[in-house]
Design a protein around this nucleic acid. Structure first.
Lengths: 190, 190
DNA sequence: GTTAAAAGTTACACAGGTGTCACTTATACT
DNA sequence: AGTATAAGTGACACCTGTGTAACTTTTAAC
């Protein structure tokens, strides 16, 4: 009985992602998004009460997708394979981590009453918990050093994507070197 | 012949730093800063044409101070000592790196005509060049792996400060573990 | 005490984003 | 063809930050 929609959620999130990565949270506006979607600004308010709701909905969508892909790790046997898979996945989904970082920042100035707050707080924790199982396997198999805190191991791995490749080293070499440094360090063995 | 000033540059930069770290670039406003300084907003415009000028001036000031402290590294003998000094300095000046990251972001949407653009572009490069000498020493002494790109080594070290310590591991332990992972890796030696 | 000059203030116009509401338009079902 | 219903629009009032300009205040030097 209703008129045909001019856009769907997937398209909307796709454009929102571009804009967020380009302009950041504050630079992101409904006008900008509406222009991209070739739709009036007011139309967006039909679906999202405000910018916060739209962006948090989008972030949850992105993180859930990432978590879903991450769970494929269980299909692999042995720690080394899982380690490789994890690093590759992280580099395949570079933006997600920028978004997660941004999310943490958004949280701080977010109303406690906001619907999405709980979900948005829960997702990174889910990810951490899930990765902790992977760390556990690594330590149990005697592959990872027992005395390095789990939080640091996870943080270290996730953080590597953010290292700026100023000198434009080819992606393959770059990731390969990162894997070596994380696993064996940058010092020569004596 | 003139009236006494109500504030000086050092105070101003001190408050600006707080506000920047708390609210980020976009959240930072002249009103906020003026309130903190207990001075009218317009007074700030007497000294800085606009927000961009004020913030870039501040960033340059911070980075120059950091670079100055960094140069103390030359007074130390041997690679290991320099390595320790560097990590400790970075953790002593955590905020500077947040600022440098922010600076990169500011650059992207900055008018090419802005006075400070050149300086702000040059400083991180100076830092990289300076650190590259340190890497060179490490490689020459046979302490650092030759085949790991310099850019990655520097990036790795600088990036570690940004690893979120979600589980609140004591700072001393945290830094100690980071030094171990960077130098020897997180894998067990076979 | 007059005056020059910089410090500081108040008040303004402007720009851009926000959220809302009354309105129009398209479409599927009867 | 008529109509209910959701989709979409244009226009509005509001708020907040920006930058400027005309003004007042303080102070040191003459």
């Amino acid at each position: 009985m209703a008129r045909e929609r001019k856009f769907n959620t997937v398209e909307l999130f796709h454009e929102a992602k571009q804009l967020l990565l380009q302009h950041g949270y504050d630079g992101f506006t409904f006008s900008l998004l509406a222009d991209r979607m070739e739709v009036s600004r007011a139309a967006l308010y039909k679906y999202y009460d405000n910018k916060e709701k739209l962006i948090t909905d989008f972030m949850i969508y992105e993180m859930e997708e990432f978590l879903h892909e991450l769970k494929e790790i269980d299909k692999l046997e042995g720690f080394e394979q899982q380690f490789d898979f994890l690093i590759d996945l992280i580099f395949k989904k570079t933006e997600v981590h920028e978004l997660i970082r941004a999310a943490q920042h958004v949280m701080t100035r977010m109303d406690a009453a906001i619907t999405n707050k709980e979900k948005l707080e829960k997702l990174p924790l889910d990810m951490y918990k899930f990765l902790q199982r992977f760390i556990l396997v690594g330590k149990a198999e005697g592959k990872l050093k027992e005395h390095i805190p789990d939080g640091l191991i996870i943080g270290f791995i996730l953080q590597t994507v953010a290292i700026p490749n100023h000198f434009g080293i080819p992606k393959g070499d770059w990731i390969h070197s990162i894997k070596e440094v994380i696993s064996q360090g940058m010092f020569m063995n004596k």
